[in-house]
Computed example of a mutant assay.
Amino acid sequence: MRDAKGEILIVDDNKVNRLLMARSVEILGHRASVAENGQIAMSMLVDGTFDILLLDIEMPEMDGFEVLEALKSNAALRDLPVIVTSSVEGLGNIVRCIELGAEDYIPKPVNKILLKARLESCLEKKRLHDEQKRLLKRFATDEVARDLQESGFAIGGHRVSATVLFCDIRDFTAMSEHMAPEATIELLNTYYALMFEAVTSNGGMVNLIVGDGLMALFGAPEPIENSAQSAVNAAAEMCAMIEMLNEERAMLNDPALEVGFGIATGEVVTGYAGTDARATYTCIGKTVNLASRLEAHTKVAQESILMDSATQRRLPVEIRSKEIPAIHFKGFSEDQTIFALEPVTSID
Rank of each mutant, 00 (worst) to 15 (best):
G156M: 09
M175L: 15
H328I: 08
D56R: 04
M244Y: 15
L91A: 14
A154Q: 15
S176C: 08
L45N: 05
V206I: 13
A140R: 11
E303W: 11
A70P: 08
L68S: 01
A198E: 08
I224G: 03
H328F: 05
M251S: 05
I284Q: 14
A193C: 03
S321A: 12
C97K: 12
D13N: 03
G271N: 02
F50M: 06
S230A: 10
G204V: 09
L45F: 12
A70E: 11
H328R: 00
E36W: 01
E131T: 10
M44G: 07
E295I: 02
L128S: 09
F50A: 10
F329K: 01
E342H: 10
V67S: 11
M179E: 08
A76D: 06
M244T: 15
L148P: 06
S292N: 00
L128G: 13
L114I: 15
G157Q: 06
V268M: 03
F65K: 04
P223N: 02
E225S: 05
A102G: 06
D212H: 00
S346G: 04
T200P: 03
K72Q: 12
L55R: 01
I52H: 08
G48D: 12
I10L: 05
R134Q: 00
S43E: 12
T345N: 14
L128Y: 15
G101I: 04
E318H: 15
R159H: 12
S230F: 05
G266P: 13
K322V: 09
L9D: 14
S227M: 08
P181C: 07
D171T: 10
F65C: 00
N37W: 01
I242C: 12
N74I: 12
P181D: 00
V84I: 06
F65Y: 09
I52Y: 12
A250T: 11
E225D: 00
I319T: 13
I83P: 09
D168M: 05
S346E: 04
G6V: 02
F65S: 10
G260Y: 11
P255S: 15
K108A: 07
L9V: 04
H30V: 01
S346F: 01
A326D: 02
E248S: 05
K299I: 03
D79M: 13
T173Y: 06
L100K: 11
V110S: 10
P255I: 00
L217E: 07
R314T: 13
P107S: 03
G29P: 13
I263Y: 02
G48Q: 12
A228H: 11
A76Y: 04
P181G: 08
R23I: 14
A231K: 14
E89M: 12
K15Y: 06
A102S: 08
N14C: 06
S73L: 05
L187N: 02
I242A: 05
Y272H: 10
Y192T: 04
F50Y: 05
I327Q: 14
N17F: 02
S121I: 09
A183G: 03
A228S: 00
H158N: 14
L20N: 00
I185Y: 11
R18P: 05
E295G: 11
R18H: 11
G156P: 03
K286A: 15
M241W: 12
V259S: 08
L188H: 07
S309D: 13
A277W: 09
L187I: 10
L135Q: 04
L128W: 13
S86E: 13
F332M: 00
A273G: 11
A228F: 06
L77Y: 04
V16S: 10
A301V: 05
I27V: 05
